[in-house]
Structure formats: structure tokens, C-alpha cells
């Protein structure tokens, strides 16, 4: 039933864009305005209006003007809540979307930044079946985190999001579609098990004595230390020269991961294997370089390097 409805909806949006207000992806920032905010009564709103009708009929029938006044007051307040609901979306701005990292099959975390010149309450954001509620203060960006399920590696467009609010009384629901023109990169899923990389031939050549980018400590100068390692500023406060001591040389050999060294495998299998090697290298804090068709990433280490390599893998055709 649900599938049928969804298919019907997508068909309707394709065929009847004017009717279903299907919105094409649009660039950020997206600002809510009157031409894209829709309002419908909620189930409770309909029920409550039926109750109001009953109260109206009763008050008129008994010619009870006090009750009639009360009913009118309640009716006026509830219909005005429609405008309040509209106002709680009107002028709201989605300024940017920041995506985290995730491998295919795991949800990716989206951080959406909303801002507004007014304080707003009880705004809700739906993505598929998940829903997030948030409030925001005037001129302060609200970061809303959403988990977007992923299936395969590569660029994945941010799906249509529904922004809605039934503030203040829950009788009317103002909503609008957000269809940001933005994609998130999903990293490939590494294979579960496989051989270790075998291209370790020229290990010794790549062993580095003083290789290391991260500053470990400061120590006293010893004869023979390269001049560029002297920490001049720190030495100025000290009575002797201090030298920046970098991380100790890698005890582990550097890996050269190469697409061409995996013949006989399908593209996806190669990607999955390379991804696993990248993970292992990262876990073992090795240095590694990566060669891919069209991309050659020189050796390096650390999370940025890892992300660079994974993104390159993810973007392979």
C-alpha cells in the first residue's frame, strides 16, 4: 500500500508539477516565503473544528450568548493559529548543509544550518521517516543533525526534505519542501577480508629516519641538528638553543597502493580492496600513497590524507 502511494506520488510529481508543487533542486541558501509554504489542518484541527461547530450549534440553539462568545473566541484563536504556523516558517533560511563521512551502507550525518531574524519554536524537519525538531533563536544559526541512509559509493544527492511546523496549537500544519541542490560523497565499503598489499618491494628505500610531520617535543640542541629545526622563538625565552624534535621515524614500511597491481578483479572489487587497505593502513598509522586511474596521491598519513584517498576512491567512475 505504501509503495503504491509513493509510486503514485512520484508519478504525480513528474506529470503534474504545477499541481504537486514539485520543486526542482535549488541552490542554497533556501529561504521560506509565502509562495512555497502550504498549510493544511491536521487531524486534530479537523476534529477541533467539528467540536467548534457542535459548540456553535449548541450555543445558538440554547440562545446562550455567553457560550456563543466563548465559541467565537475559541474559533478565532484557532484560526489565527494558522497564521502563526505560517509565520513560524516564513523567513526561515537554510544557509548551508555540511555532510560528514560515511561508507556505503551506513548513514551519513548531515548538519543543516538554519538561521532567521526571529526566534522560532517547534520547527520540524523530516527526512524519509526520521524527524528532527528544533528551535532557533534570533540571528543565531541552529545546526540540525540528520542521518541520511546511504546505499552505494559516490555522489549522492541530498534528498528532498520536508520542513514543517504545527506550532502553536497543533491544529494547522505549515510545510514546505526543501530540495537543496547539493550532493554528499559516500565512501566505498571496504571488503570484509582479503590479502594484504604485496607491493612492499622497496621498503628499505622508503624507510625514513626523520620523517614525521608532527611536532613531538622540544629538546636541547645537539651538534649536527639541522638549523631549520631550531625553535628560534622558544629559544629566545631560554638560555640555550632548543630544537624541534619530530616524530620518530616510521618503524613500519610505507605502502604503495596501486590500482594497477590488482589485475583480474572487477572495478568494484578493486575499490573495495583498496578501501580495506586504506583502513588497515590508517589503523596501523602507516604512510601510504595511492595510485588510481587519473589520480596519483603521493604518500602521506593522518586523517586528512585518509579522507582524501577515500574520496578519490569514492569518485571513481
Amino acid at each position: 500500500m505504501r509503495e503504491v502511494l509513493q509510486r503514485l506520488q512520484s508519478w504525480a510529481e513528474r506529470r503534474l508539477p504545477a499541481l504537486t508543487r514539485y520543486r526542482r533542486p535549488e541552490s542554497l541558501p533556501i529561504e521560506m516565503h509565502r509562495r512555497r509554504i502550504y498549510i493544511v489542518p491536521t487531524g486534530f484541527g479537523i476534529g477541533f473544528s467539528v467540536l467548534l461547530m457542535v459548540m456553535l450549534a449548541g450555543a445558538l440553539n440554547y440562545a446562550n450568548n455567553a457560550a456563543l462568545l466563548l465559541t467565537c473566541l475559541l474559533g478565532a484563536a484557532s484560526s489565527t493559529s494558522m497564521l502563526v504556523a505560517f509565520r513560524s516558517l516564513n523567513g526561515l533560511r537554510l544557509s548551508h548543509i555540511h555532510a560528514g563521512h560515511a561508507i556505503a551502507g551506513q548513514p551519513i550525518e548531515l548538519t543543516l544550518s538554519f538561521d532567521s531574524t526571529r526566534a522560532r519554536n517547534a520547527i520540524r524537519l523530516d527526512l524519509g521517516r526520521t524527524s528532527v525538531a528544533f528551535a532557533l533563536d534570533a540571528n543565531v544559526a541552529a545546526r540540525v543533525k540528520l542521518a541520511l541512509p546511504t546505499a552505494r559509493r559516490g555522489w549522492q544527492p541530498v534528498p528532498r526534505l520536508r520542513l514543517w511546523s504545527s506550532w502553536p496549537l497543533g491544529m494547522f500544519r505549515a510545510w514546505s519542501w526543501l530540495n537543496p541542490d547539493q550532493s554528499v560523497l559516500v565512501w566505498p565499503q571496504p571488503e570484509v577480508a582479503g590479502p594484504p598489499p604485496h607491493a612492499l618491494a622497496d621498503d628499505s628505500r622508503n624507510m625514513r629516519l626523520h620523517q614525521g610531520d608532527e611536532l613531538a617535543t622540544l629538546r636541547d640542541y645537539r651538534v649536527g641538528d639541522p638549523r631549520r629545526h631550531i625553535a628560534w622563538k622558544a629559544s629566545a625565552h631560554h638560555h640555550s638553543l632548543l630544537v624541534k624534535d619530530f616524530e620518530q621515524p616510521q618503524s613500519r614500511p610505507q605502502w604503495q597502493l596501486d590500482w594497477r597491481q590488482l589485475p583480474g578483479l572487477g572495478d568494484e572489487a578493486r575499490i573495495a580492496r583498496l578501501a580495506r587497505w586504506l583502513n588497515e593502513a590508517q589503523a596501523q598509522r602507516r604512510h601510504y600513497s595511492l595510485w588510481l586511474p587519473g589520480t596519483d596521491i603521493p604518500a602521506g598519513g593522518g586523517p586528512l590524507h585518509y579522507a582524501h584517498c577515500m574520496s578519490a576512491l569514492a569518485q571513481l567512475p
Partner: peptide
């Protein structure tokens, strides 16, 4: 605040909602 701001509308409706000349159902009146 909501009730106070909507009071004018409520009064307008109260003033203009057509009253019944005869009760819809003959329930005893207070």
C-alpha cells in the same frame, strides 16, 4: 495574547452569526 488579539474577530463573528429564530431541537432552556 492569542485570545486578546483575536478578540475583535471573535466579537465580529459574535455580532454577525445569524441567530436562530427557533431552536433546532426543543431542549429546555436554562
Amino acid at each position: 495574547t492569542l485570545l486578546a488579539t483575536t478578540l475583535p474577530l471573535a466579537l465580529l463573528v459574535f455580532l454577525l452569526v445569524p441567530r436562530l429564530n427557533t431552536p433546532l431541537w426543543g431542549a429546555p432552556s436554562p
